[in-house]
Every structure is written in C-alpha cells, then in structure tokens.
Amino acid sequence: MREIYKQDLEHLGEDLERMARQVARATDRARVCLRDNDLVLAEQTIDADDRIDELADEIEANCLSMLALQGPVASDLRLIIGALKLSDTLERIGDFARHVASMARNSYPQPAAPEPIQTTLNQMADVCASSTALLVELITDHDLELADKIIAGDDLIDDYHLQVRRQVQDPANDLDRSQIVNATLMSRFWERLGDHTLKAANRVVFIIRGERALHGSHN
C-alpha cells in the first residue's frame, strides 16, 4: 500500500509539471496570436484550455483521494496541499491566456488595440510568456533562483500595465470607446496572468521549503 502511495506522489509531481508546460504553451500561443493577429492560433489556444481544466480536475481528485485514504504527514502533506493550490493557480493562468486569445479572435481582422498600445501589450505578453516558462523550470528543477526572476518579471508587467493606462488616458491617442475597453481589458488580463504566475511560484517555494511567500503583495 505504501509503495502505491509513493507512486501516487510521484505521479502528482509529474502531473503538475505537465500542467505547467501546458499553461506555458497556452501563454505563449496567446502572446503570438495577439502579436500576429493569428485567428487559427487564437482558436487553438481557446480549445486547449479545456485540457488544462481537465488536468486540474484530475489533480484535485487525486489529492483529495490521498488526503482521505493515506493520512499523509509532514512533507507529504505539504506537497499534497501545495499541489491542490498550485493546480488551481495554474488553471487560472490558463483562463487568462484563453481570455487574451478570445479578445484577439473577437477583434479579428483588426489588431486587439491600436498603436502605441498594441506594442506595449506585446511587450507585456513577452514578459508573461517568459515568466511562465521560468515557472516550468522552477517546478521541474527546484532552482529557487528562478523565483527571483519571476518576481522581477511581475514588477515589469505591472509597469507595462500602468503604461497602458496612461496611453489609454492620453487624448493624443484619440481612442473610441471599444478601443478603450479592449486595451484596458487586455492589459488587465496580462497583469492578472503575471500575478498568478508569481502566486504559482510562491506555491512551489512553499512545497520545497515549507515557507510562505517570496512576494507579500501577491499572496
């Protein structure tokens, strides 16, 4: 029985790695479909979110089963509880990537936002994609120095978010109402995606070290 339990814990770690890779792929696809105004890639990103949700449900079910049947203690309990929270956070990252792709699809054949806002959104997206890729490495390699890079990325994403707000409010850009709404929502989606990537990094650090958070403002 304990050997099966050990295998279940190993599978849990593998499922988390797989989910993180899917989320990072979704974020990168959302980034590209926004930049290139790619309708096909937007549809693929939206469709892929169902698979992320299914994996999150599977992880949750496995965690609850181990909690109910195995009575884990100490580091095993921390792993299972941490995995529950981490999978939920990863699922939210996938949701925000889907939101971005949906807006890109709805704006087609026009870009999601006019210049110079589109360029700023593309820069935000680049950092978000880089941060989710770092998150995959953090989960697989347990290199805690990567968490510092994710923190720095989140700060940069927040700076871009403020920049979009200023651009939207700048009368020189002469935006209509739909452009204001699109730019504001798109920036918000990327900003929240970055926040949840940082939150996921905090979850991983907790699983590894048993300590709470790297960055208090986004717990």
Rank of each mutant, 00 (worst) to 15 (best):
M1L: 08
E3Q: 09
Y5Q: 14
E10F: 08
H11Q: 15
D15A: 14
R21E: 08
R21Q: 12
V23W: 11
A24C: 08
R29P: 02
R31V: 05
V32D: 04
R35G: 05
R35K: 12
D36K: 12
D38A: 03
V40G: 09
A42S: 05
T45L: 03
A48Y: 15
D49A: 06
D50Y: 14
R51F: 10
I52V: 13
A56R: 14
D57V: 10
E58H: 09
I59C: 02
N62G: 12
N62I: 09
S65D: 08
S65Q: 04
A68D: 11
A74M: 01
S75R: 11
D76G: 01
D76W: 04
I81C: 10
I81N: 12
I81S: 11
I81P: 04
A83E: 03
A83Q: 03
S87C: 06
I93L: 05
A97M: 01
A97T: 00
R98K: 12
H99Y: 15
V100N: 09
V100P: 03
V100H: 12
M103E: 14
A104G: 09
A112R: 04
A113L: 10
P116K: 00
I117T: 08
Q118D: 04
Q118A: 07
T120H: 07
L121H: 00
L121Q: 01
N122Y: 00
N122C: 01
D126F: 00
V127I: 00
A129L: 07
S130P: 07
V136A: 07
D141K: 15
H142S: 07
E145F: 05
A147L: 08
A147G: 09
D148C: 06
D148V: 09
K149T: 13
K149L: 14
K149Y: 15
A152Y: 09
D154H: 05
D155F: 10
D158T: 06
Y160N: 10
L162W: 13
L162P: 07
V164C: 08
Q167E: 15
D170V: 05
D170H: 08
D176R: 00
D176Q: 07
R177M: 13
R177H: 14
I180Q: 15
V181Y: 11
N182T: 09
N182A: 15
R188A: 10
F189K: 05
E191G: 06
R192Q: 10
R192M: 12
L193F: 13
R203N: 06
R203W: 07
V204A: 15
V205F: 15
F206M: 10
I207M: 11
G210M: 06
G210D: 04
E211A: 00
A213C: 04
N219V: 05
